[in-house]
């Protein structure tokens, strides 16, 4: 019988962990910094380096 592979953890795991972190640590002032880092990280990871270009043009 073929075994079914489970998908590698998804974004929900990360969001759950992030929510758990804020709930216990209550350091909400870190939230903007983390969001910015994650968004930039996501652009780099999922879009590749060229995807950064439109954002850079918009900013400058």
């Amino acid at each position: 019988m073929e075994t079914q592979r489970l998908p590698i953890s998804n974004g929900m795991d990360f969001l759950k962990d992030l929510w758990g972190f804020f709930r216990t640590r209550k350091k909400f002032w870190l939230l903007p910094a983390i969001i910015v880092l994650i968004v930039v990280g996501a652009i780099i990871v999922f879009g590749g380096s060229t995807a950064l270009a439109p954002f850079v043009y918009t900013v400058f």
């Binding site: 590698i8 953890s9 795991d13 990360f14 962990d17 880092l37 994650i38 930039v40 990280g41 996501a42 780099i44 990871v45």
Partner: peptide, 17 residues
């Protein structure tokens, strides 16, 4: 930071992988 936002924050995913 790149190492963190690309990898270390997603530790569950890294461990399962």
């Amino acid at each position: 930071m790149p190492v963190w936002v690309k990898e270390k924050l997603f530790m569950r995913r890294n461990i399962w992988k």
